[in-house]
């Protein structure tokens, strides 16, 4: 019971933070709020018994993502979002509300929150819970499934991260040489 209570409060905080992020225009404040958002969701993961996930979310979402975003706004030197002239909020709002309504309609068919007899709980999960400790000798089921039963998936994920690293290096890895020179030239021509 107390779980549900905490969940509701945290979810309310999450919603408030998200709305604040939408409404704010100062990018620095938005990034700080995003860090708060990550920590709140990490707290929610803990309440829902996903300690590994919460750990990762706190380290990655609140730590690395925030640092990278700060680095980006330091590089782009653009601390405020400008409201463009052709800013029309109504069409996006309608689309979002329609999608949201469809999703809420979809959740009507989802089994009750925390139901032990739901299809997700009865399909492969019992196998992992019962067999992982005797078969691998590792008490943490998440680690066992991650590295052993689904090792192939994880190999894919590692390769994705590796590729992203290479891509970032290709995009902004070297010292800037040509691009700035070209831009300066163009600005001179404009002036």
């Amino acid at each position: 019971m107390i779980d549900v209570f905490i969940n509701v409060i945290l979810l309310a905080f999450l919603a408030i933070t998200a709305v604040a992020i939408v409404r704010m225009t100062n990018l620095f404040a938005i990034i700080m709020l995003f860090g708060i958002f990550s920590f709140l969701s990490a707290a929610m993961f803990i309440v829902m018994d996903a300690v590994d996930v919460a750990f990762t979310e706190a380290a990655v979402g609140a730590g690395i993502s925030t640092a990278l975003m700060l680095a980006t706004i330091a590089l782009t030197k653009d601390h405020d979002e400008k409201q463009s002239v052709s800013y029309r909020p109504w069409l996006p709002l309608v689309v979002v509300i329609a999608t949201g309504a469809a999703l809420v309609y979809g959740t009507l068919d989802i089994p009750t929150f925390g139901d032990p007899d739901a299809p997700t709980q009865t399909h492969v999960a019992p196998y992992y819970i019962e067999r992982s400790a005797p078969e691998t000798g590792v008490p943490n089921i998440v680690t066992a499934v991650l590295a052993s039963y689904r090792g192939f998936d994880t190999l894919g994920e590692v390769v994705v991260i590796f590729t992203a690293g290479i891509a970032v290096l290709l995009l902004i890895g070297g010292r800037r040489r040509k691009s700035t020179a070209v831009r300066d030239e163009r600005e001179e021509n404009d002036a």
Partner: peptide, 22 residues
């Protein structure tokens, strides 16, 4: 293996971003 890759890729990304500002 996962740990080494994640560690070095995160640092590569950070150094790329930070080194860009120099």
């Amino acid at each position: 293996g996962v740990g080494i890759t994640v560690f070095s890729v995160m640092l590569i990304i950070f150094f790329a971003f930070a080194g860009r500002g120099r």
